[in-house]
Simulated assay, not measured.
Amino acid sequence: MLASRIGGTLYIGVTNDLVRRVYEHKSGTAESFTKDYDVDRLVYFECFEDIEAAIHREKRLKKWRRAWKIALIEKDDPNWIDLYPEVAGG
């Protein structure tokens, strides 16, 4: 889950390479909603072995109320700190 800022615009997506995909959003090479709304802060993610399970979870999260999504983020990342440096190893 990406965010523009604390309490800002949210984006939910699925990928087979989290580091690459977030980098694309950060660098602006991903022509999309995230570029238009400056959404590039990785604030929550889940890992799955099975792509079908990942897609199912993505679809369910997209249907959640915004308050539920915020609660999910803030459970582990109350300050909406960008997790990208941690997952990218730098």
Rank of each mutant, 00 (worst) to 15 (best):
V14E: 14
V14I: 05
V14C: 11
T15N: 02
T15I: 01
T15F: 02
N16A: 09
D17Q: 05
D17M: 03
D17N: 14
L18D: 04
L18A: 03
L18W: 03
V19W: 12
V19R: 09
R20C: 00
R20L: 06
R21V: 01
V22A: 08
V22Q: 04
Y23K: 07
Y23I: 01
Y23T: 10
Y23F: 12
E24Q: 10
E24M: 04
E24A: 01
H25D: 03
K26T: 00
K26F: 00
K26N: 01
K26R: 08
K26Y: 02
S27L: 00
S27W: 05
A30H: 09
A30D: 05
A30F: 03
E31Q: 03
E31A: 00
S32P: 01
S32R: 01
S32G: 00
S32I: 04
S32D: 05
F33H: 10
T34F: 03
K35F: 04
K35P: 00
D36I: 05
D36M: 10
Y37P: 07
Y37C: 01
D38T: 02
D38S: 12
V39T: 00
V39C: 00
R41H: 05
R41Y: 01
R41D: 02
R41T: 01
R41I: 02
L42S: 03
L42V: 08
V43K: 13
V43E: 04
Y44L: 03
Y44I: 13
E46L: 05
E46F: 05
E46G: 10
E46S: 11
C47E: 09
C47Q: 12
F48D: 09
F48T: 05
F48I: 08
F48S: 09
E49A: 09
D50R: 12
I51V: 15
E52M: 10
E52R: 10
A53C: 15
A53F: 12
A53K: 10
A54R: 11
A54C: 12
H56Y: 15
R57G: 09
R57N: 08
R57D: 05
E58Y: 15
E58M: 08
E58S: 06
E58K: 12
K59G: 02
K59S: 04
K59L: 15
K59C: 11
R60V: 14
L61F: 08
L61M: 09
L61I: 04
K62E: 13
K63E: 13
K63R: 15
K63Q: 10
W64R: 14
W64K: 13
W64L: 04
R65L: 10
R65F: 08
R66Y: 08
A67E: 15
A67I: 07
W68G: 09
W68C: 09
W68N: 14
K69N: 10
K69E: 13
K69W: 07
K69I: 05
I70F: 12
I70P: 14
I70Y: 06
A71K: 13
L72S: 12
L72D: 15
L72T: 14
L72V: 12
I73M: 15
I73A: 14
E74P: 15
E74F: 10
